[in-house]
Amino acid sequence: MTPADAPAFRTVAARPHEPLRTFHARRAALGRDRTDALERLFPRYGFSVHDEAAPAPRDAHGLLDAAALFGRRAPLVLEIGPGMGATTAAMAAADPDRDYLAVEVHLPGLANLLVLVERLGLTNLRVAHGDALELVRTAVAADSLDAVHAFFPDPWPKARHHKRRLVQPEHVALLVSRLRPGGTLHVATDWAPYAEQMVEVLAADPGLVSDGLVARPAHRPVTKFEQRALAEGRASHDIVARRLP
């Protein structure tokens, strides 16, 4: 694939009529290997939430067609903000009976995850570039997700920015509506005040039963980000909830 044929990526920025973003839209250098991964692998393993030139496969109702995306029908896990992708790749590799869709706005992380997909030969992992909440809102069918993971989303620590946090009632209600009955919502943070908010929000949602703060489940690897936080004295907090029947 030549650069002219490669998928075009645009920065995801909020417009006045759109919901507040829960992430920073950042620019960063990709480097040769990650640029190569995007050019070669994104057309095979990815799609864009925002760019019609690289659309998601759709079913007859205009919703995401996971069977066409993965080439099979299997329980689907949505990973929101996989970062550089090591945790998502490890979880997908250890869980071959489920499919993983990782939605990331940060191109270096998405490219790095594509490198891992190729290196590990993963057939149950696909990527999407863009805003995960927009994808869920516009293209994910109700009751279609087996699990939603959001590990270490931006804590937006300043009080005036709390409205931008991912875990808040309206966002959680949206995610719960896409979970199957019995499906799980698993979030984690190293920011203690955010963990308190997560516990409160998940416990208050009428569609969930929450386990509250739990020890890190064995299936979630410790991330490099988490290791750095621990070295700086910030403990991690996991919260797991299940959708009621």
Rank of each mutant, 00 (worst) to 15 (best):
D205K: 13
I80H: 04
R228F: 05
P193G: 11
G83C: 06
A159T: 14
P169L: 06
G121D: 05
K158R: 15
A67C: 04
L202V: 03
R15C: 04
D190H: 07
R228A: 15
D211E: 15
L202E: 07
R40V: 04
L38G: 04
P193R: 12
W156E: 06
P217Q: 03
T88C: 15
T88F: 03
V187G: 04
A86E: 15
L101T: 01
A53Y: 05
D131T: 10
P55R: 10
K224P: 02
A192S: 10
R243F: 05
R220E: 04
R26Y: 07
R164P: 07
A28Y: 03
R160A: 12
L78V: 09
E79T: 01
G71I: 11
V12C: 10
A128H: 09
A128E: 03
D5L: 15
E226T: 12
H237A: 14
G71N: 12
W156I: 09
L202K: 03
A111W: 03
A235H: 13
A89P: 12
A128S: 08
N124C: 07
L185A: 14
L101E: 02
D131C: 05
H17G: 13
I239M: 07
P206K: 08
E39Y: 04
H171W: 05
A147Y: 05
G109D: 02
R242S: 14
R220S: 02
P181G: 10
S236T: 14
F70W: 01
R26E: 08
G130R: 01
G121I: 10
H61P: 00
L135P: 01
H149T: 02
N124G: 09
A29T: 14
L76A: 10
D99P: 08
R98N: 01
T184S: 15
L202A: 07
A173D: 13
H237M: 07
V222H: 07
A37M: 06
P181V: 13
L41G: 06
F9C: 03
G121Y: 03
R21P: 08
V167I: 15
P96I: 06
D146F: 13
A90W: 07
A60S: 14
L213T: 14
A54D: 13
V12G: 00
Q197T: 15
A195R: 02
F151Q: 07
V240N: 08
F152P: 01
P153E: 06
W191P: 05
E39W: 02
A67H: 11
A218I: 04
L101D: 03
L244H: 07
R98A: 03
H171C: 07
G130F: 02
V105M: 01
A229R: 14
A56P: 08
A86V: 12
F70H: 06
E200R: 15
R178S: 04
R10A: 12
R126W: 08
R72P: 09
D99V: 09
M91D: 04
V148N: 02
T223K: 05
V172L: 08
A128F: 08
L120I: 00
A68C: 10
D51S: 11
P181C: 05
E200S: 14
G109Y: 02
R44N: 01
A147D: 03
